[in-house]
Write a protein that binds this DNA or RNA. Sequence first.
DNA 1: GCAAGGACGTA
DNA 2: GTACGTCCTTGCA
Length: 975
Amino acid sequence: MHLVLVDGSTFIFRAFHALPPLTRKSDGLPVGCVSGFCTMLHKLTEDLKGEDAPTHMAVIFDHSAKSFRSDFYPDYKAHRPPPPEELVPQFPLTRAASRAFSIPCIEMEGWEADDIIATYAVMARQAGGRATIVSSDKDLMQLIDAEGRVRMLDTLPRPGQPPLRWIGPNEVFEKFGVAPEKVVEVQALCGDAVDNVPGVPGIGVKTAAELINTYGDVETLLARATEIKQPARRQKLIDNAELARVSRRLVTLSQDVPVELPIDALVREPIAPGKLFPFLKAMEFSTFTRRIAGLIGADPDAWEADPELRAANAAPTGTSATTAGAAPSEVSAGTGVAGASGEDTPVRLAAAEAERIRALPFATDAYEIVVSRERLADWIADARAMGHVAVDTETTGLDNQQADLVGISLSTRPGHACYIPLGHAGGESDMFGGGRAEGQLDMRETLATLKPLFEDRSILKIGHNVKYDMGLLVRYGITLAPIDDTLLMAYALDGARNNSMEALGQAWLGHSGTPIKDLIGTGKSQITFAQVPIPEAARYAAEDADMTIRLWHVLRPRLVAENATTVYETLERPLSPVLMRMEGRGISVDRGILARLSGDFAQRAAAFEAEAQELAGEPFNLGSPKQLGEILFGKMALPGGTKTKTGQWATGADVLEDLALQGVPLARAVVEWRQLTKLMGTYTNALPGYINARTGRVHTSYHQAAVLTGRLSSNEPNLQNIPVRTEDGRKIRTAFVAAPGKMLISADYSQIELRVLAHIADIQALKDAFEEGLDIHAMTASEMFGVPIEGMPSEVRRRAKAINFGIIYGISAFGLANQLSIERSEARAYIEAYFAKFPGIKDYMDAQKRRVKADGHVTTLFGRRIPFPNATSSNPSERAFIERASINAPIQGSAADIIRRAMIRMEPALKRAGIAADMLLQVHDELIFEVPEGTEDAAIPVIREVMENAAVPAVHLTVPIRVDAHAARDWDGAH
DNA sequence: GCAAGGACGTA
DNA sequence: GTACGTCCTTGCA
């Protein structure tokens, strides 16, 4: 006997996350997950052949979130958000799917699927048979036995591994460091964040395994805990003995569930066409139906769709179809799902195209390596015939200002791609071997041949994060244009989730591609792409171009279907080349200034370090919050210590500042030391390392699709967090200088977010204040506290300012109290007063909270959607967090959209005005330019004009937008 | 060598 | 209370 037990949850979960959710029946019911479920179930029966073929089989489901475990530990699985809305109607359908395949499906109230699986597995073994558990749930690993009579099978396809992954005692040992029968002991100690099993705080899997291997089991360990040498570990175990026992009960599976069906009732039956086809037809899985029909030699047309499934599950038309989860999502209710059967709505066309592309197989060995001029010409001709081509460059590094070109891949249509190797190193050459590999076209000549195509305004070049390739190719004399970018398309559609090629491929193509580390390795032994053998490189590179063009085919129609075209075309696509040029220009940084500052800071830091150790009475590492906390709150026993979530003493700047005010000189010394070492570590010492040897300047990279509100982010180095608040910090800005004969101009929006808020929430009092050019914080204070603006105490204004910022951040009494070091009740009174004075604010905040829950997203003034897939989370603190974020996101995001529009228009405007200004940096509400000395006064009005009018004509703001701009030799002076 | 946590720089 | 990226220590391989 071989009993195969399928964990239904694993299949559902995987089907949901692996597949695009666009699949719907003609009546609008989402069935993508059911479809995936059927595919996986069928594939499993196909894969289990020969001695692995099941004689008995069942699919086991969870009945509900409640099980007997909640009775003795109410928090069990309490973190779990409710299932996404579109998944709910699919649950009964997955049961129906199992039955349609003639496989019994089992679920029982009060028991988790895992308990039922455990019970049946044990029954099979006691009957002298074998059991296979198809699941990826590690909680089931405790059931595996050493004789191979109970095994697990994970069907997740992982690149480079066989599709079936058998899990036996060895794999269990790999994961838990112990034999299967000890798994529960380890889990009892290390807990499980996902299921909310507490475990012993501070003990992870590794430590748990070590302890269990020494002591055998939890009870013995707890009994002999005093023998443990490490003091911290010993104490943790003693303190949390009860947690460990409860955890052990939680993770131990019941093996005596009173199951209704005896094992004999699970005998595998052949597929019954009379059961299967009515189901598949009701689900409208036409492709799958044909495939199965072919396999079992039946005529599906002999059966009608199951009328009950049809009627019972017809979705009410017009229901919001907001979705959640890792897969790309979001079909809004109004865009054509409702009603209409067979009509060619944009949504339907996009879904059909996605399905068509997904069905195309990958054949990585079929890609061509281009080594002749003739074939190169053929590919160029093909690109011209198509009017578009996907382009991907392979290089020696991640920094496109420094890396060398190694090869180029092209794809003109799905499955049809090539690789043009240009800079691969010779075979046996090691790092310094120098040789050039055989079988490559000449780089210069090839680039010259490609240049007309790459610069042809009538041929679209498609890339994934094409800014990288553009920035690289510019250095080789090629200006890639026009471009489309699948990364930016995905960002416009689904926001800042994981939009990597790998993730999008997995979600939309069912294929994640080859990880680059498979080719170049990782860490110390990493090689560059130039050292990768050409055939291997070609498979990887061409696959990337192939995936890019496939994604383009899927995402482009979605832009129209999901109303994201305007955002993509006006805020994303045109910005990309602008950022590429800014990155290429870089900014000049004065090494000498940084070196002098570094010396100064180091000296002063050393003095504070000595003082701190003197005051502490012992030498310790000031950089270790852990050691500091123990000295302050342990050794010195200072009052008022709080702990972080991991049980460490909190020693943040606010805590130390409090202590310093209470007369703890050690706290003051550490605050000063931290400031100085921060400035050294992150800026004065680190920045020189970013000066590019070729250009002598520092080139940051902007990430255009990283921030959920639509802001940019900057990295390597981050030039958006150069210090400005403290005097020492500002000195670092003096090292950012204009090139000889040039000047820097800094132009920044004044109070842009508060102005945007005044417009969006329509607050007349705020608008009037901006119109009159008042000090907005002082005005707020005078309104709220009835204090005249003339002679207002600075403390009063400070509080009003904190409240204004608080509003933008989605204020809470808790947060405001923290910020102002006041009682929470007082903070609450302030907020009430604010709402009373500006009632529109409360309306705005409530409206955003409603919207985010109803739609799963909020939008900026310019139509950018900012998704919050967990807006209806059952976790109250998560929900509150999302509410605050949904209040902030339209404000921060609209301001971000405005400066994007300004940046897109800036270069043409300067050119028209005949001003040779180069835009170098963006810092959220500030733009930095470099201009020839003497042209500052001409440049500033143009810059200001573009920035102040960036919103029109798309949006006519009902508040004035003001820009402050100054010129100086260095950034500090200009700011 | 790598990941997580704490801390801290900016808007 | 919002949004990021980087550095350092710690604790594991």
